[in-house]
Design a protein around this nucleic acid. Structure first.
Lengths: 196, 196
DNA sequence: ATAAACAGCTAACGCGTGTTAGCCAAAAAA
DNA sequence: TTTTTTGGCTAACACGCGTTAGCTGTTTAT
């Protein structure tokens, strides 16, 4: 009888959620089966249900824990007394680091949220929409202050957020530049693209 | 007995492939069922098999037809006698327009290729790797000629390609700016980010 | 030491999946 | 007009899925 191994302060559920992130990232939510997950965890499929309610619950947890971290950060950044472009750069760097250090979760939240079921789905979409509007508002204020080129702010947000998800390719690549080099390159190109 | 409607020069198979692109984009390859597809086409599921070999064949066709268009374009661009940054801009504009006008196919090829089976999978991955290397080589030559900032070329490619896939969000948004405005904004930000 | 709570197991369920076989009508070719 | 080819249909298959029931061993608390 194989038990799920845990250290202190890491519940068995957390172990399952983490493995789920890895599996959902690798295969996609629909293609990853509970039997796959069970094997990754080292247990029979049915045993998982002593710790979780459903497969979808795993997706909820992943998507919303990621979303909450970003919402919390934008709260923090908005409140700071710095220029708009500095706010953009802070958010950008945060996104990059989240994508580097919590790759699997962030990736899954980004790509697999479609498979959430209502009411979580609408909820998630709303949060996302609002987040992007707030991000765009920062850029717009940067345009008004002549810190940023006259561009369409929602388009800029879209470019930034999707560019960041490209870090996926960096993770997969065999000859990686260092994480900090990656961060600096991305900031150079993207912040450089907004300013003049 | 409902027949699949076709105009001249559009085979019934093409109708199926096109509907499949739309469905795979909407639900994801795994989540889209052949019964869904049949309904979209206006026919029973089994009838599809008079025109196609398998569900996966649909994915092959989509992925490789998109990939081939990009490979053909980069052949063409590489051969032109223009500056490196102009080559980058040409490729960028081509990508943007493909994403705008062949949204569903390009999106599916981008996001769902993981579900290809070998040998198509390795093949596709190879083509992708090579394409990106060629793109990076153009940027590197731009750096050598001082047309482009001193940045990591593979990172630049990754940013550009993923930023373009953000056009997905533009398609979904209700208050769209025009396609040409979108194109100009993206070029401004991305080419601007590489140069100066 | 005993009881309660926890965490694993096997077996099985109902359902949706991709796909095939076999048949028949409509369209195209003769 | 007859024949052949094409493109539908219904029925059914085998399989993998998420999940539940019921049981047993193990850990924790009393």
């Amino acid at each position: 009888m194989a038990r799920i191994k845990t250290d202190k302060n890491i519940s068995r559920k957390d172990v399952i959620v983490t493995k789920a992130a890895s599996l959902f990232r690798e295969k996609g939510f629909k293609a990853a089966s509970m039997r796959d997950l069970a094997e990754a965890v080292g247990v029979e499929a049915a045993s998982l249900y002593n710790h979780i309610k459903s497969k979808t619950e795993l997706l909820h947890e992943l998507c919303f824990s990621v979303a909450n971290r970003f919402l919390q950060k934008i709260d923090e950044v908005e409140a700071e007394k710095i220029s708009s472009i500095e706010k953009v750069e802070k958010l950008l760097r945060f996104h990059i680091n989240e994508m580097i250090h919590h790759y699997e979760e962030v990736y899954v939240s980004d790509r697999e949220w479609k498979h959430l079921a209502d009411p979580y789905l609408s909820n998630f979409q709303n949060q996302r929409r609002i987040y992007r509007k707030r991000f765009a508002a920062i850029i717009e204020s940067g345009i008004r202050n002549n810190e940023v080129k006259k561009i369409d702010a929602p388009t800029a947000v879209l470019i930034i957020l999707h560019a960041i998800s490209g870090i996926e390719s960096w993770h997969r690549s065999t000859q990686k530049i260092s994480a900090s080099e990656l961060e600096e390159n991305m900031v150079t190109i993207l912040v450089g693209g907004l300013t003049q």
